[in-house]
Amino acid sequence: MEHGESDIEALLEIRNLHAGIGDTQILKGIDLSIAPGEIHAIMGRNGSGKTTAANIIMGHPDFEVEEGEVLLSGENLLELEPWERAREGVFLSFQYPQAVPGLQVGNFLRKSVASIRGKEAAKGADFRGELNEAMDTLDIPRSFLSRYVNDGFSGGEKKRFEILQLLLLKPKLAILDETDSGLDIDGIKTVAAGINAAVRGTDSAALIITHYSRILEHVQPDKIHVLIGGQIVATGGPELAMQLEERGYEWLDPKAEAEGIA
């Protein structure tokens, strides 16, 4: 282990997490530790539980945690409500961002920054300057400020808008659930630059959920975890992403091996 010795407190620590919905178990014992300044990635098949894990860290009310712990800088996140977690510095860039017709982007961003970073941060010329700069970085036209949140946005625009929020909210832990899907190549580079700027050399950390190695080439994650059937079956460096892209997931699937398919 290069990082994460027990004397360095992990920013995110997940221990033996079992969770599901109703009677369905989705996560079956996950352990994960991310140190400040690190970027990790999770890859895995459709339906393996990636979004579920992200939702549980954020506090989605539909899921039940049956066992295990989720700690942010040593603090038990599972006791906190979603907005409390957001205020503690957890941010989730959603795989499918929610549209809110009638709620203007500018108004939403101001309220959101005020509730997470405090009223002062959302006021005056400083905030406007910060907002303009972030919008320019992400190539989001100013006209978006008067549009409704994610309403009628294209797939790529929704993802850019999630990253705009990431840049403005300055979280400690950013989870990006397939933010690269639906982005064009320039978009992926921009997002990767945004993640690097938000994490590298800071006390923050990021967890990137993705199906593709392209974004990982630009962020160079410290670790890649492979999630299959609600369990992390392999952890490795950037080379793992290339292997997965070439060989798929079968060779890592314990079930497939047991059945002699692999």
């Binding site: 954020m58 989605h60 907005w83 009638g102 709620l103 203007q104 309220k111 959101s112 409704y148 909210l169």
Partner: peptide, 28 residues
């Protein structure tokens, strides 16, 4: 509920989320 969760994940407490969503609905 999905809209509520989205707003809560952006720091809105439940009553802020609710009044924001009512205002948004009427604002449309």
């Amino acid at each position: 509920e999905d809209q509520v969760f989205y707003l809560e994940s952006r720091g809105f407490d439940p009553s802020e989320a609710k009044s924001t969503l009512i205002a948004a609905f009427l604002n449309s």
